[in-house]
């Protein structure tokens, strides 16, 4: 058998006249089954339990919490993001499968909120990753959260919620902002450029000065060392 690279890849062409109808159906279904990964970064997270549980009951909209980024559709950032956390948020965001949506809850994600003067928090979330929807407030009530989620559902259905494509199209811009904050040797385990190629979203903004800088500093990834507890000790007899 030849290697996997030799298998020719056939470009899919949309020739079916029913494709539009089918797309619409897909978007409808997509908007009705959303899994959220709530990255509870700040105090706004406290409004999520009532939004999820029986009082306001998010599940009647088909929205449920999910435990892992790989299976989640929505990344919910609930409040101020410290610079240390932002790194983890970006790692998480990049690990989510497309299509993915980001909601910034709380004023802190919009412009820094009451922590605008803090050395430790990032101010504008949409500089580091594309945000579909902001729910402002300090903190927004569960009604506002639910209204925001409904808006997102409408946006997904109408096809407007395509900010995840923006991350691939303008990766250089986002990477530039990340590098400015985290230093030049900032690197994530996800190969965003190859993913952009995979989704056929490679465009002018994908590559640029910052991705070149990334290539210079990039270190090959190694598997994480597995460790249980502290140093392994001999079990006591």
């Amino acid at each position: 058998m030849g290697s996997i690279k030799q298998i020719p890849v056939v470009e899919a062409k949309r020739t079916n006249p029913l494709a539009r109808v089918f797309d619409d159906l897909v978007r409808f279904c997509r908007s009705r089954s959303l899994f959220i990964l709530h990255y509870c970064t700040g105090c706004g997270a406290i409004e999520l339990p009532p939004a999820m549980t029986s009082r306001f009951d998010m599940e009647r909209l088909g929205i449920q919490p999910m435990v892992s980024p790989r299976q989640a559709d929505i990344l919910l950032i609930t409040g101020y993001v410290s610079i240390k956390t932002l790194k983890r948020v970006i790692l998480t965001y990049e690990q989510m499968g497309s299509p993915k949506y980001v909601i910034g809850i709380c004023s802190c994600t919009v412009n820094g909120g009451m922590y605008w003067q803090s050395y430790a928090t990032a101010k504008k979330l949409d500089e580091y990753m594309p945000v579909d929807l902001y729910i402002a407030g300090c903190m927004p009530r569960p009604e506002a959260v639910i209204a925001g989620l409904q808006q997102l559902m409408d946006k997904i259905h109408s096809g407007e919620a395509s900010s995840w494509e923006d991350y691939y199209r303008n990766y250089d811009y986002y990477l530039g902002n990340q590098q400015k904050l985290f230093g030049e040797d900032w690197q994530t385990p996800t190969d965003v450029i190859s993913e952009a190629k995979h989704y056929d979203l490679l465009s002018e903004g994908t590559l640029g000065d910052h991705t070149r800088l990334l290539e210079q500093h990039q270190k090959p990834l190694e598997a994480l060392e597995m460790r249980l507890g502290h140093e392994q000790e001999e079990p006591a007899k």
Partner: peptide, 13 residues
Amino acid sequence: SEAYINEHLSWQN
């Protein structure tokens, strides 16, 4: 702190 964020971060009113 304010000088630090004005230098390192952008924020909006």
